[in-house]
Design a protein around this nucleic acid. Sequence first.
DNA 1: CGACATCTTGACTACAGTCAATACTAGTGG
DNA 2: CCACTAGTATTGACTGTAGTCAAGATGTCG
Lengths: 216, 216
Amino acid sequence: MTSKSETTPAQLRDCSDCPIRHRAVCANCEPKELTALEEIKYYKEFRPGDTIVWAGQDLDFVASVVVGMAALSRTMEDGRRQITGLLLSSDFLGRPGRASVRYDVSAISDVTLCCFRRKPFEDLVASTPHIGQRLLEMSMDELDAAREWMLVLGRKTARERIASLLAMVAQRDLKVASPSATGPLTIDLPLSREGIADSLGLTLVTASRQLSPSPI
Amino acid sequence: MTSKSETTPAQLRDCSDCPIRHRAVCANCEPKELTALEEIKYYKEFRPGDTIVWAGQDLDFVASVVVGMAALSRTMEDGRRQITGLLLSSDFLGRPGRASVRYDVSAISDVTLCCFRRKPFEDLVASTPHIGQRLLEMSMDELDAAREWMLVLGRKTARERIASLLAMVAQRDLKVASPSATGPLTIDLPLSREGIADSLGLTLVTASRQLSPSPI
DNA sequence: CGACATCTTGACTACAGTCAATACTAGTGG
DNA sequence: CCACTAGTATTGACTGTAGTCAAGATGTCG
């Protein structure tokens, strides 16, 4: 695990200023619950390419992604790799009740995590209602998204896969960013060609071809 | 929605006799919670091929699969279809807090569901701890399984996919059935060739070829 | 500028898809 | 009992999309 720094960015120390306050696992928390969370939280930052945890390792925290993009992935013994989930701003990492993770987690762009120490977080889930409820809601959203993605991986052509990825990222961004913007749509996709390929079950070369300005 | 019958099989009326009592959503319930569940439950049965709900429809209940196998699937406008999940004995169907489902659900074999009326079930989730906690645990298991499956769909060859499906079903069966049995392993897979193909992102023909006793 | 990583493009290959014929099975009715 | 049908499964021949291998282009940074 390679963490760049554990100093808290000044502007993030207070939950009330937090950009993901109303979308993350803490969204429905009452002031009292929020205070409890605030006491067990700390920030971690990662650079693009950093590994946050390796599959099989234990994670001594759970976390919300504050900013940036991270990937969950599995790699087979022979090197074939599949990204099985992208974590974007406000997404949750980790699983209360189980320390070990089943996939590699790595930073795609600069990532800031809002981490909660595992044990006290689990206690909070057990003793207060809103965190557990929000977590259930978020897991089920993730599950719906994962199943949607199975259609992409199982049935769509290379071109359709690229389109699906762009659409997915664009849609998630739109919900957050300026809902104005009538200009040309721009999508911030920090993934490399290899990352795109690994998300879509394609090879780097095929991903590149589909994105290149195909001659005619 | 085609339901064969809503008469309760005699041997199922009492939760204490239930074959999934300790694995389903009710696994951790205390006697009091179990009584509350018992009051809002009823059974439904389906025949192979029956549709339990269509994507987009509302489901006025949530349910545990008591026996049988059901499939969650999505179909594109042009007919391409992907099974995005298999529900086996003790698996949970539905989502508290949202009536509409995002995928078709259909019975593969004879299926018996233990249904809970939606609204009172949601109230129970909110007012008691163990159902919600178990539900969170089960959703996260499903999410892990879904991500595992993405590796199958994105990266494995036709042959490996077949192997993965057999292994997955066998493993789930083993946990339940006799942990003795040193004889030749038999797997009960009620899926048709088309069902296998739709689970694995293959065509019927390819699935059939991989299963046929390939001539050398 | 050179070194290194990433991306693009071309030529060829292979795995799975498509189309189509045939085999098998179960059910129905003469 | 056999003929007929309908649904499902197998097999063959051919095609096409994406994979592989490899060369060259582009970009970044010391």
